[in-house]
Design a protein around this nucleic acid. Structure first.
Lengths: 336, 336
DNA sequence: CGTTAGCACTCTCGCCGCCAGGTTGCTAAA
DNA sequence: TTTAGCAACCTGGCGGCGAGAGTGCTAACG
């Protein structure tokens, strides 16, 4: 429905706006791109593109600026064109990050830092859900007769721990017994499995109160890490973007970010959607606080559970670069 | 050297400026505080305070604003007066946070959030150094014949872990043997002890290459968590402060914060100074990037090692409130 | 019919001058 | 030492003005 030239004009306008962060006019467009037509013709095209809702003027007699819808077609083109099959970008960085990895948390943090630097956006890396993963081993460490640490190692190598307080003294032998029992029963199960087994109350061994207490903690602890383990870096990158030169623009974004819940929901969608990358542009985001930013998110799998790596920036972000960078980060985190 | 009234004037000015964030003039001062003298007298006092370097005018014919030196005397007064012995503030919050604690990381995060909310500043909570703490237990979990997870539980209950890759296959038996050996030799030691023992090469058992490899990782892993485990929250609180309404003001602060190293040094000083609270005001900070902010930091001990809890805000921050809040956070984290 | 050139129109932005408000420093008096 | 009065000073907001940039319209051209 859009003539080939008009698509080219739209694309050129968006590229220029992404680069210079200023409204783009017909003359600039003909000067910077080989469109082969005069500014007057471009003016007609711009007018049509505005009618179609892809661009708008901040005010009469200013250049045009892309709308969310404009970015959307731009990004769709990007995704459906060669970009998806492109050879792996940033390979050197990927290798370096992977080599530096000795622990998931550290790797997540470094990847997040690299991503922020690469894209000039804020980056978020969330750990894979431990809830979905299988349990490899459980260790109980006594702190005192009334307290112990539960350490759960998941199949994919994640380690989570939690301190539990008993209502009565528990001897070292009892603790060792509980540990053996727990390992016998829980290893190879997911937290969901365990929850179900508990509810059905079928497993004889699980009736022991001490064991039940510990299992409760194990489950809660696995669940907690679902929401708890995220690394985010790059607020300073965001501050450098002209759209956030005013604190009022950044405030709602930071509030959402520090709250977590909204972001989690968005990321869950990213996982469920299942595509290689999810791009949410401005008002496509679930809350109005995020109406001014775009999110490029990408699930990465570690075994059966999935984490998410994402960047958040102004809607004027460099989508091509962001998508490439996020996919590189996915590579880093995907293999173990 | 400063007359009693002039001290009162200085104090009143600072309190007003902290509250309203606007330069304070002689008239406002006499209206809002019972100074018992006329604006003209206060003008003389203000002039003297300016000569002494405690206050300054943003420009002729504006009110006065405190200098870093002004805040310094204000804070010194605060610390030397009753505030130090005051009954514990925020007791309810302390209890609630403590009760919600099941894991150090979660407790740190929640405490940080509470602190940010309470003070309208950015808050940072750093985990105690694991390097200084004694090792309680070491667990090795095999991931594959070439990989294992090392889990170290410190005396104070902190758990850190790390994945190690072997150059050749390691059987389950070998791993179990190494684990026994490590526990026999390392439990009760600090990472520093272990390092020394390794260097002196005195302990026969430590000559085994597999064990050495693992010990190296253990030490590195303990060291890494020294710099790695910090929680910070409250950028949004900072954004609400008028001094950070412009992104340019916040940018250097965020850069330092995301870099870590500068902050670490400052915090080390807080620990070494040994007082109950360290207050760094504006230019007292070690780097120029932090010249516009104040830091209220406070070490908290968990066993032998020490962590730091701090808030960072504009020099115009509510010092009394910040100090109270930080000490409350100290209470939360101090007990286990 | 699509494209182009010319032109009048509109709007923002920066600059300037102006006025009002608030604060100071000085001087003289209590 | 404190106070009252007064002139001087500076910022901040408001309105007007001109420059610059971009548009939309109209008419001509292939």
């Amino acid at each position: 429905m859009l003539s080939e030239r008009r698509q080219r004009v739209l694309r050129a306008l968006i590229e220029d706006y992404i680069e210079f962060a200023l409204p783009v006019g017909s003359r600039t467009l003909t000067e910077r791109h080989r469109l082969g037509v005069s500014p007057a013709t471009v003016r007609n095209d711009l007018s049509a593109l505005e009618d179609a809702g892809f661009i708008q003027q901040p005010h009469t007699s200013a250049g045009r600026v892309p709308t969310d819808a404009g970015y959307r077609t731009f990004v769709d083109d990007l995704l459906s064109s060669g970009l998806a099959e492109e050879e792996r970008p940033h390979q050197a960085m990927i290798d370096e990050l992977r080599a530096s990895a000795t622990e998931l948390d550290a790797l997540m943090e470094r990847t997040s830092a690299a991503l922020a630097r690469l894209t000039d956006c804020l980056s978020v890396v969330m750990a894979p859900s431990v809830l979905a993963g299988r349990i490899r081993q459980i260790t109980l460490v006594s702190l005192s007769p009334w307290q112990a640490i539960i350490i759960v190692v998941a199949e994919d190598g994640q380690v989570v721990n939690r301190t539990v307080t008993f209502t009565e003294e528990v001897s070292a032998d009892d603790l060792a017994g509980a540990q053996n029992l727990l390992n016998r029963v829980l290893v190879g199960q997911t937290a969901r499995d365990v929850r179900r087994a508990l509810d059905e109350n079928t497993v004889e061994a699980l009736r022991d109160p001490l064991v039940q207490l510990i299992i409760d903690e194990v489950i809660e602890c696995l669940g907690e890490t679902d929401t708890g383990r995220a690394h985010s870096l790059g607020v300073s990158s965001l501050l450098r973007q002209p759209e956030f030169s005013d604190a009022k623009a950044l405030l709602p974004v930071m509030e959402v970010l520090e709250d977590d819940r909204v972001l989690l929901r968005t990321f869950d969608e990213a996982v469920e959607e299942g595509g290689p990358v999810m791009v949410r542009i401005g008002h496509e985001n679930p809350t109005s606080e995020l109406a001014g930013v775009s999110i490029v998110a990408c699930p990465y799998g570690r075994g059966e559970s999935e984490g998410v790596v994402a960047v958040i920036g102004p809607t004027r972000m460099n989508y091509a670069g962001a998508i490439r960078a996020v996919r590189a980060a996915q590579c880093v985190l995907h293999g173990q």
